[in-house]
Simulated assay, not measured.
Amino acid sequence: MPADSRPMPGQPVDDKVSVIMPVFNEAAGIEAALRALQPLREAGHEVIVVDGDSSDATVERAQGLADRTLAGERGRARQMNAGAAVARHPLLLFLHADTQLPPTALEDARHALATGYRWGRFDVRIEPADGILLLVAACMNLRSRLTGVATGDQAIFVTRQAFAAVGGYPELPLMEDLALSDRLKSIGPPACLRTRVLTSARRWQRHGRLRTILIMWRLRLAYRLGADPARLARDYYQ
């Protein structure tokens, strides 16, 4: 820890977490997602919802269930950067609205950061699971361990100091999680926690399991080969 960030003698160390949730048209599930986080708020942690110009009742339904609800332009990277900019605590955790944290998630993340890591992610399980989605999740977790690259579904956590040092999320329309991982790897490897977060299978259900897998492989490969993220976003969201 740099000398200028050490607490004064007798000063309590703030190891609380700011959970930042970017949302867009999540009215159907936002209340359930935020109610699941109320025990964290009661324990002194912070929940920040950053809306991306939703056209439904997402913002109204989030009111009262988060410490702060921000409105902004659509773009997950911009939204998460906006949430980080107003976060009160030194530890940040970025959580998708369709991903659920297990009870020990914040304690496990805090422990990892206290033992020398500056950032990390959780293993993921896709729910409801079937044979294919169990395999998909296992491959995601293994690939992440081998490459040091995390996806947003894995609930990336990071010290605010490290997040600021790398300039936050690159404001890309897609693949912002891969780009952030690349930046953070320059200052240290991730803590790859075996604690599992649960993420919704709705993307695979909506577009079909095999088709979604192929689309994601193609987009990731194209990104690594230098394709324009704006074009990839158009292909992904069409």
Rank of each mutant, 00 (worst) to 15 (best):
C192N: 10
T195K: 10
I213W: 05
D51Y: 12
A85R: 06
P12R: 14
Y169M: 05
H89S: 10
D182V: 13
L133H: 09
C192E: 12
M216T: 10
I156Q: 00
P173F: 02
L95M: 08
A150W: 02
L65W: 08
Q154E: 09
L180G: 03
R68E: 07
R202M: 10
R231P: 04
T69L: 02
P2Y: 10
L210D: 12
R224E: 11
F163L: 06
A77N: 03
E26H: 03
I30G: 01
A222S: 10
R110F: 07
R183T: 07
D51P: 12
D123T: 05
Q154T: 08
F122D: 01
G188Q: 11
V19M: 12
I187Q: 14
A28W: 00
I132P: 10
M21S: 14
V86H: 05
Q79V: 00
P2R: 10
H89V: 06
A109Q: 03
E46A: 00
M8V: 15
E31C: 05
P128I: 11
T212G: 03
R231E: 11
R61V: 03
A57S: 11
A71G: 07
Y117I: 01
D177G: 03
I187A: 07
Q11S: 12
V50D: 00
L193D: 00
L106K: 13
A230Q: 04
D4Q: 10
G75C: 03
T147D: 13
A62L: 02
A27C: 04
R143D: 13
A112N: 15
D4M: 12
G83W: 01
Q100W: 05
A105M: 10
L65P: 06
L113C: 08
L214I: 11
Q100M: 07
L178A: 14
F24E: 04
S54D: 02
A85V: 04
L34K: 00
G208K: 15
S18T: 15
E127P: 04
P189L: 13
A32K: 06
S144E: 05
P90E: 14
P102N: 14
L146G: 06
A85G: 04
G10A: 15
Q100N: 15
R110Q: 14
N25S: 08
I132G: 12
G152T: 02
L146D: 06
A32P: 03
F163A: 04
N141S: 07
G75A: 04
V19Y: 09
A230I: 03
Q154H: 08
P189E: 13
L193F: 02
A71L: 06
L133Q: 09
L174C: 06
V136M: 13
T212V: 05
L134F: 12
I132M: 15
E26V: 02
E60K: 06
Q238F: 01
E60W: 04
A32G: 05
V197Y: 10
Q238A: 04
G148T: 05
L134I: 09
G188H: 15
V17L: 11
R194F: 15
Q38S: 13
L133K: 06
L219T: 08
V197Q: 11
C192M: 15
G167T: 11
Q38R: 09
P90V: 12
A114R: 07
A105F: 09
R194M: 14
T159D: 09
E176N: 13
T199G: 10
P173C: 01
R218L: 05
L95K: 02
